[in-house]
Design a protein around this nucleic acid. Structure first.
Lengths: 183, 183
DNA sequence: TATAACATGTAACTAGTTACATGATTGG
DNA sequence: CCAATCATGTAACTAGTTACATGTTATA
């Protein structure tokens, strides 16, 4: 899957491996991310498959930048993937729920501490969704009006994150209240 | 992590690898799952680490059942994990959002088809959360009253799934309307 | 004076998936 | 008669993480 994310970013403009990591963290970070090392190994595979080409840009006192460009066949591969419907649900893994599920014999305070800590983490994340990425989107649209549709979809993914955190916090409050009362 | 899920199930009662898969699918399936093969390999590692022991139950005309029991050291390992706070957010991967993010140049109908298909998938999942698991929890509590606290937490995890699907559907409706109007 | 940012990559490892191998019994 | 359920496991693979290796320049 990372393969497609990388092709997607390269479709907008050439990137070095380092830049892909940065762009990804700022944009798809909350629903798709990767470590720097995995980006480099995936780029290597994409090059081997002819979906991407790269050329070095010499630099002094630093390793040469290696700029990656999507090829025609890479563009087709991306397009093919984009047109295919997603026919099943993601399989999510939520560590907190796993722990909670088996916590019936833990004491009340341990569970409440756990839940309250989560609440603070999600509260912070919720605030991030409400501010940061919107600015970024506005900037891009101002400078490149042809990305207006793209920006609408980016905003939709941001909105997803915001709603997700909102509901998470609501659930935590509900659950904290339940444990306080019935446990 | 699967390691702890398995220890958690074995804490309730002995299981064969096959039964762990079934129990997991019915209970933690929506926030933690594993393939049968991974369960077998993880059980093997747990045995090697002395956290679990197993003994075969001979059967005719079928491979012997191998019943697994948690050891004292396995119990301690589980307990240690349960008492530790979860200090960071899960890193989630949502394929639909990744695809949507890069779909600025797709045509309107492709995107709407994509979103409507997702809506039907999540609608079905939402219905599942509202019925199935509640029955299961009620049965257990009726037969084992000492699991009342456990049942409260199981219900909380079910509720999470329900809320999650509800918000997902709300977001899909919002996004479908946005695409219909502005794209 | 230390640490963050810039910039590349490989090696070893853990986690998880898919495919293979085997084979009887039960229900539709 | 065919598919599902019961029941075990290994092998080969893909995806992802952590650790290693190298080194400069700007900033706090």
């Amino acid at each position: 899957m990372l393969k497609y994310a990388i092709l997607g970013f390269l479709k907008y403009r050439p990137h070095t491996g380092y830049e892909i990591k940065q762009t990804m963290d700022k944009s798809t970070g909350h629903f798709w991310h990767a470590k720097q090392s995995q980006i480099y190994t995936t780029l290597k595979k994409l090059k081997e498959g002819g979906l991407v080409i790269s050329h070095p840009e010499p630099q002094e006192s630093r390793p040469d930048r290696r700029v990656h460009i999507i090829t025609e066949s890479g563009g087709k591969e991306l397009q093919k993937w984009l047109s295919q419907p997603v026919t099943k649900l993601d399989d999510s893994k939520v560590i907190l729920l796993l722990k909670l599920f088996f916590s019936g014999k833990e004491n009340k305070e341990t569970i409440l501490t756990q839940l309250r800590l989560q609440r603070s983490l999600h509260e912070r994340q919720f605030e991030l969704y409400k501010t940061e990425p919107t600015d970024f989107i506005q900037e891009v649209v101002a400078s490149q009006p042809d990305l207006k549709r793209d920006a609408l979809l980016w905003e939709a993914t941001r909105r997803f994150g915001e709603l997700h955190e909102e509901i998470y916090i609501r659930w935590l409050d509900e659950t904290i209240a339940m444990v306080e009362k019935k446990f």
